[in-house]
Design a protein around this nucleic acid. Structure first.
Lengths: 206, 206, 206, 206
DNA sequence: TATGAATGAGAGTTCATTCAT
DNA sequence: GATGAATGAACTCTCATTCAT
């Protein structure tokens, strides 16, 4: 059983995290001040430092959990017993939905600057997670196209597939519609985009 | 006839504007200080305020010209006498290059921020220009697909084409590579993406 | 009879005081935070405020005991039955060691800050204790030189003796070595300095 | 000819430097804030950053010029044609007077913490200058005692001579008297201290 | 008694901007 | 027209201290 204090503490932390998430994504990391976050979270700016080492730690804690969760979901889909192209489409829609749900944060982990490899920053961890996600998608695309993992065309068409996927996400990441509305309205469009793309790619690969 | 003073004055102003443009593009608006611009332009930082109200004014004056230039370039391409699909590809590459060149200035050019309509901000003007650009692209796609402008499939496939285009831009808008490097390295990839996409779409539209 | 609670309470207080003493001495008053002290003492930083009004109160309570202890030690040495010059040397080394042990706490113990006489600050008390110490040293020097307490040469050579003593302390008060290391390494040097000085002085006093 | 602006600028810089000197020495480097210095100097705290890179640069600029000047004065004395013991006494009095004139700063360069050798900090430069001064004094003492420069007794007695010298400086560095008053009143005392010390040392060295 | 939560004051520093020449 | 001098606002972050339990 958690004490009332612990509960309040947890609430404060969550509030800070939520506020930071909203502000970072709407105004950008640099443009948001610790005092902005504090005001939004309804606490003093010093309180933030009780829960997070510094501003960068906030960014980190904000980015990792959702992306790890997405990785799990994708793994689950991959392990299911269904046709590869169904899997790919499911995964794609999953990624889209995930990014739109977390849309005010998605660019936190999709647009991380290229990181110097020599220092183990928290950004490194995000980078790794993102790369893993890319790897899983490649794997799924490979299964669909029936290409060898060394075939250089795999990289080419995975990239192109990505453009489509990322374009969808970027296009709607600033929408004011709810994710449900968006997905309900546009799922056929998305599915069609995958379909025509795969048709085109297949005509080239075989 | 302009006096020598006026001429020198005009030169200083241009130098400031040019320096700001280069710096904003390469390092981003926020990361550039007025003193940086002044040093690059070879004048004092106070001199900038003679010609421009403030830092934001610099950005404004800097925002419109390139986008207008892009519109012109697209118009030129549209008016050329070549196959529609060649035109579309040329326009697409042009738009990509433009967005990457200016990637740091308007972070993602396509990102539709909800703009308050009641105030005539410079953002409004950019919005209008962007909408024009979209119109021209649609037009070009229409010519390629041979669809009637009222055909609802035109909207569908234009959207899908956009996903691809926008995805490319978003993917590379945070790269540290120069645009020359990027385009040199990836132009074939981009071209291939348009090709397979059009193959797919055509197979549907017939 | 004291209750178990009172006993535990007293222990906590002592632990805090001891921790503060150690930390103040090793890192200096300003560089030590209340949280540092609490961690060292094994309690929460808020607990400190139960026993001590504020950080300065800790310093006060910590300041007097060691200096009183030094006075006692000097008294003990003075009352021993040994040659006056041996006593003087022992006292001198004692004072040096004391000042180096506490070097960080009262920056230079001998530094006579002009103290306002109208307020009974804790510094006043320290001042008094220090004056007492000076008196005892003079007394010891007098015994060594065999001078009358009114002889003006006593003041002169006591001053000079002080220069040497104070110079030693000042020289090493910013060292990073431990007192043990310092005293172990330099005690012969210190002893030699006292010896040559007394030789010189005696040759004058005759 | 200097413009009025340049003159004012120079005044501001000097004022900042002077204020920093007074405050650093009276309250200690850490305890003094940039805003304190600014208030004392009669300017905004940001103005300080126009003239000095950061707080540490202030300390540096404050410490170096006087110590270099002292080095020159000592060199002049050393090159004069007079008995070694006269030279040593003159140098000693010079150092004392210098330190008392700059008393509110002397501990800035006499009590520099031992510095990590791997980074070329400004403190390093002070360290070097101080070491040079020590070297010159050793040289002079060597001439007086007629010892070989490798004789280990030279180091011993130089150290002891230093204790006396530094003790004098430390003792009077907090006095409110003017340097003229102090030197006028105490020069005989200082001279006597050097004399008895050298008598004692000579009796040992033979 | 004891503590985790929370805060205001203030540290060094940067920067867009204004003032006086 | 042009500039060096100067500043206020604001940034991230720390710390002694108080509040509520």
């Amino acid at each position: 059983m958690v004490s009332k204090q612990e509960q309040r503490s947890e609430e404060t932390k969550k509030s800070i995290l939520a506020s930071a998430g909203v502000l970072f994504s709407s105004r950008g990391y640099d443009a948001v001040t610790m005092r902005d976050i504090a005001k939004e979270a309804g606490c003093s700016h010093t309180t933030i430092y009780i829960y997070f080492k510094d501003k960068e730690a906030l960014l980190h804690q904000l980015s990792m959990p959702p992306i790890l969760q997405l990785l799990e979901q994708v793994d689950t889909l991959l392990s299911e017993d269904s046709p590869p192209s169904d899997k790919l489409q499911a995964i794609s829609l999953q990624v889209i939905e995930f990014c739109l749900v977390n849309r005010n944060m998605y660019n936190l982990f999709f647009t991380v600057k290229s990181v110097r490899v020599d220092e183990q920053t928290p950004e490194m961890a995000i980078n790794q997670a993102r790369n893993k996600l890319f790897g899983k998608l490649t794997e799924s695309i490979q299964a669909v196209l029936g290409l060898d993992s060394q075939d250089e065309r795999l990289l080419l068409y995975t990239r192109i597939y990505f453009f489509n996927l990322y374009g969808i996400i970027a296009t709607y990441s600033n929408s004011d519609e709810t994710v449900e509305q968006l997905m309900g309205r546009l799922k056929p469009t998305f599915a069609e985009s995958f379909e025509v793309l795969l048709i085109g790619i297949r005509s080239k690969v075989k």
